[in-house]
């Protein structure tokens, strides 16, 4: 195990970084899209309901199948991996964004309008900051969930630690096959913990002390 690690350390590091970077970027993209969709939907009960059902159904789609289906339109490599990951990231964040925005006290919004904030200003300066802790919680769920999905993206030759797992499993019993799988699994867990820690830190920095629990 020791020699396996020391022999392949650079590859492991670069694959880990790719894995991390893939998830982090998809998370960022998904957050922006989720907030945008939520902003369009949250004022209407019907639209919120539709968005909620779509995200519930979306989460039940097997990620392996979805990745496979993406090969036809997008080919192999980074593109299908990014699309699928962003899709899975999107769903929990969208749900939380809807819940968070709907949970902002109506009297606060009226106070903001009453002192002359436009509806745009009210959204960005009042509603979004108030909903932000809930949205961030959704981001943490998404980050954990897509860490695993990102490993599967090796199936479409996406970047990250998945290739170690797939190659290890395909020749299980062979030399270093077991080490390959274990290394990748441990690395994924470590990266997941690091990303979670970073999101926690982001919360510390961006959630106002006035609304922190």
């Amino acid at each position: 195990m020791g020699s396996y690690l020391s022999d392949r350390w650079p590859q492991i590091l670069s694959a880990s970084w790719q894995h991390f970077s893939l998830v982090a970027q998809c998370l960022l993209l998904a957050t922006v899209i989720a907030i945008f969709i939520a902003a369009l939907c949250y004022r209407s009960k019907t639209l919120s309901g539709v968005a909620n059902s779509v995200s519930a159904v979306g989460l039940t789609i097997p990620s392996f199948a979805l990745l496979g289906l993406m090969i036809a339109p997008l080919g192999f490599g980074v593109a299908p991996a990014v699309v699928v990951l962003t899709f899975y990231c999107l769903l929990p964040i969208l749900r939380n964004a809807l819940v968070g925005l709907a949970g902002v006290d109506r009297s606060l919004i009226e106070a903001a309008r009453g002192i002359g904030m436009s509806s745009m200003e009210t959204f960005f300066k009042v509603e979004l900051p108030m909903a932000w802790p809930v949205i961030l919680a959704g981001m943490r769920v998404s980050a954990q969930m897509t860490m695993g999905v990102a490993a599967i993206s090796a199936y479409v030759l996406g970047p990250g630690l998945g290739s170690f797992i797939f190659s290890g499993l395909s020749r299980l019993g062979g030399a270093n096959s077991f080490e390959s799988v274990v290394t990748a699994v441990v690395a994924v867990v470590v990266i997941a913990l690091i990303l979670d820690g970073l999101l926690l830190l982001l919360g510390r920095l961006t959630i106002s002390r006035g609304i922190r629990a």
């Binding site: 009297s107 606060l108 106070a111 009453g114 002192i115 002359g116 009042v126 006035g210 609304i211």
Partner: peptide
């Protein structure tokens, strides 16, 4: 118009994050 008129509601309506 509303920026030129003071408005006070019950409990102050303060924005808790500011």
């Amino acid at each position: 118009l509303r920026r030129r008129i003071g408005y006070v509601i019950q409990a102050g309506g303060l924005l808790p994050h500011l």
